[in-house]
Nucleic acid binder design. Structure first.
Lengths: 212, 212
DNA sequence: CCAGAATCTTGACACTTGTCAAGAACGAAT
DNA sequence: ATTCGTTCTTGACAAGTGTCAAGATTCTGG
């Protein structure tokens, strides 16, 4: 009987702890999201915790309550960013019923991303570069890279499928190609080059039939 | 006569100034080279002028004598880096007498670069990302990117030439592809992945005949 | 309603940063 | 050898950094 009570008490306590953990985690994500704003604006090198706090509704102390240190915060940011990013094109893949539809959907999304989410994406490239110096970032960054590669592969596979074919290159090569093109277009776009986006679209439109 | 003397004096003065300028510039490059050491080790975000000075034979004051500020120094580093980088594969292109020779020369250089100059290359990716935030870097970075694209294009053109063909894609797409692959391999290599280099070589070996 | 835990604020700390200025060391022309 | 301009060293400054801890506030279970 004592054991049962203990068991029940344990269950209640566990449930409470789970709840607390969830709340704690939700807060962490709120904070990470706020941090992403400033990180996207200033980049990793120029972003301090105080700056993050000032551009948000939180005080700088809260960040230390929820994160063990700055790296911990930024790792959380990276992980959270991943979840948003990795499914960006999946709807297009799911709803397209033809090659053309898939192409146009993909291109439209590509243009919109470049136009509206330039800051988040430059942060991604920044952090991926940071991972080359800071080992703490590597695991998450490599994981995200894999997910993005898989995302591109899903698009390419579907595209090839519509033509009754198979993609002509490996997932790694396809991802390298599109990521490289996107990165270059992003830099030009940020530098004020109005032709960056249309040129990227042209290039991708030309490329798709040749690689898939 | 007075005019002649003035003219001669002017010429002498000019010559002296040119000499001083050259010496000044040579010193700047020495300092930039020293700075590149630390930058390659720590990355842009974690590198301070004092750290640079401590890892070199110079005191931190000298850097402020030769550079107006930190950005000026790093811009000079980037420009200097460019000169070294952009001709890396030209000897291979010049001396190869067949497809195979070009392929093997290119792959060997690729592997050696990844192995021995990982630090300089991660710095390049770092600074290219910084250019997405810091306008002061953009001009130089875009220029270097163009030069690298041209370098890849020379390789691909020569390769295609050996086969009596023309490259199948645009310079931009080819550069994006190889740069993307290299970047990914570099990250994996730095993360301790022993298969990164051989996998890159395999991929490139497979890719070359299909794109050129 | 109240005690204790969780959450948050505030201010301080030790340290690092970029920048600058005063003067020392040096080199070359007179 | 002296002088003057160049080059370099040193030390200081203000501003900004991550981190922490003490206390205020809010929430919650009893």
């Amino acid at each position: 009987m004592a054991r049962q009570v203990t068991g029940a008490a344990r269950r209640v306590a566990d449930a409470a702890e789970v709840l607390r953990d969830e709340k704690f985690n939700a807060r962490r994500i709120e904070l990470a999201e706020a941090a992403l704003e400033t990180l996207g604006e200033l980049g990793f090198a120029r972003t301090s915790l105080r700056e993050i706090a000032q551009n948000s509704a939180f005080t700088h102390g809260v960040f230390h309550y929820y994160f063990s240190d700055k790296l911990d915060l930024i790792c959380c940011c990276v992980r959270h960013y991943k979840a948003k990013c990795v499914t960006r094109y999946d709807e297009v893949v799911a709803t397209a019923t033809s090659r053309d539809e898939l192409t146009e959907g993909f291109l439209a999304k590509l243009a919109a991303t470049l136009q509206n989410e330039a800051r988040m994406h430059r942060l991604w490239y920044d952090l991926r570069s940071q991972a080359m110096f800071e080992a703490a970032f590597r695991k998450d960054v490599l994981e995200i890279d894999k997910s993005l590669e898989a995302m591109i592969w899903r698009i390419a596979s579907r595209y090839a499928e519509f033509g009754g074919k198979r993609p002509a290159s490996s997932p790694a090569a396809l991802y390298a190609l599109f990521d490289g093109l996107f990165q270059s277009a992003l830099l030009k776009h940020l530098a004020g080059d109005k032709t960056a986006i249309p040129e990227l679209l042209d290039e991708v439109r030309r490329l798709l039939p040749t690689v898939c």
